[in-house]
C-alpha cells in the first residue's frame, strides 16, 4: 500500500524537481546575460522561497480570506449550475431558451461586470462571492447536462416499462448517471472560482491575496520576489481547490470511472 502511494507520488516529484531546475537555470541565464528587469522577469527560486517564509503569516491570512470567498461563490454557482442543467434536461423548450444565454452570459467579461455588481450591492464580499459563483456556473451546468443526457436508451426503456414516473427515473437513473459529469464540471470550476475571487480583489477590495499581488506589482523590482510569492500562492489556491474537489469525488463516488483510486494512478 505504501509502495503504491510512493509510486504514485514519485513521478509528480520528479516533474516538480525538473520544473524547479528549469526555473533556476532560466533565472541564472537571464542574470548572466544582463537582461533588463531580470529579477522581475524571473527571480531566483530561493529568493522567492525566503520571501515566502518571512511573510508566511500575512500571506496565508490573506489567502484564507480569498479561499473562503471563492468557496462560498463556488457553492452558489455550482448549485445554480446543477439547477439549470436539471431544468434544461426536463424540458427541451427550456434547453432551447437557456442554452444560448448560458453561453452568452459566460462571455460577459467578469472584470467588466465587477464594478457593476459592486455598484449594485456596495459590498466587496458580496461582489466577490457573486463573481466567483457566476464564473463557476457554466462548466457545472454544461457537464451536468451531459451527464443527465448520457443515460442509455435501454435503461430508459426499462424504467418506462416498469411505469416509473419522471421523478423516479431521475432519482434512480439520471441523477446517479449525472454525478461523474457533475464532478468533472466541479473540478473545472473550482480553480475558476478562485480566479474570479482574485479578479474582484484586483478591482479594489481591502483584503485578499489579489490585493497583495497588486501592491507588490506596483512597488516594482524590489518587491519582485514577494510578487512571485503571491502568484505562486494564487496558483496553489487554485490547485488546492481542484484537489479538494477531486478528493471529495473519490470519497463520494468510489464507483466512478473518473476517480483515480481504482486504477491506482495519480491525477484524474
Amino acid at each position: 500500500m505504501k509502495a503504491a502511494a510512493a509510486a504514485r507520488i514519485m513521478p509528480a516529484l520528479v516533474w516538480a524537481a525538473a520544473a524547479l531546475a528549469l526555473w533556476q537555470s532560466g533565472a541564472w541565464l537571464l542574470q548572466q546575460r544582463g537582461v533588463a528587469l531580470a529579477s522581475s522577469k524571473l527571480p531566483y527560486p530561493y529568493l522567492v522561497a525566503v520571501a515566502l517564509f518571512r511573510n508566511a503569516g500575512s500571506l496565508l491570512a490573506e489567502a484564507a480570506v480569498t479561499l473562503l470567498n471563492a468557496c462560498e461563490g463556488f457553492l452558489l454557482g455550482a448549485a445554480a449550475g446543477v439547477a439549470l442543467a436539471l431544468f434544461m434536461s426536463l424540458s427541451a423548450t427550456m434547453e432551447r431558451i437557456a442554452a444560448p444565454y448560458a453561453v452568452a452570459s459566460q462571455m460577459v467579461p467578469i472584470l467588466g461586470l465587477a464594478p457593476i455588481v459592486y455598484a449594485i450591492f456596495r459590498d466587496e464580499n458580496t461582489a466577490r462571492v457573486l463573481i466567483a459563483g457566476y464564473i463557476s456556473f457554466f462548466p457545472v451546468a454544461l457537464h451536468t447536462l451531459r451527464g443527465l443526457q448520457s443515460v442509455r436508451q435501454e435503461d430508459r426503456d426499462l424504467l418506462h416499462v416498469l411505469a416509473c414516473g419522471r421523478a423516479a427515473s431521475y432519482r434512480v437513473l439520471r441523477l446517479p448517471a449525472a454525478l461523474p459529469g457533475m464532478f468533472t464540471g466541479l473540478k473545472a470550476a473550482a480553480p475558476l472560482a478562485v480566479t474570479g475571487a482574485i479578479l474582484v480583489e484586483l478591482m479594489g477590495a481591502q483584503r485578499g491575496i489579489g490585493v497583495l499581488m497588486l501592491r507588490h506589482l506596483y512597488y516594482g523590482p524590489t518587491h519582485a520576489a514577494l510578487f512571485w510569492c503571491t502568484v505562486l500562492l494564487a496558483a496553489a489556491l487554485g490547485i488546492a481547490a481542484y484537489g479538494i474537489t477531486a478528493a471529495l469525488e473519490n470519497t463520494l463516488l468510489p464507483w466512478s470511472r473518473t476517480s483515480g483510486r481504482r486504477q491506482g494512478r495519480g491525477l484524474r
Binding site: T195, V231, I239
Partner: peptide, 12 residues
C-alpha cells in the same frame, strides 16, 4: 503540471 498552469489566475 498542465492543470496547475490552468489554476494560475489569468490576472497574475
Amino acid at each position: 503540471l498542465a492543470a496547475s498552469l490552468g489554476a494560475v489566475p489569468i490576472v497574475a
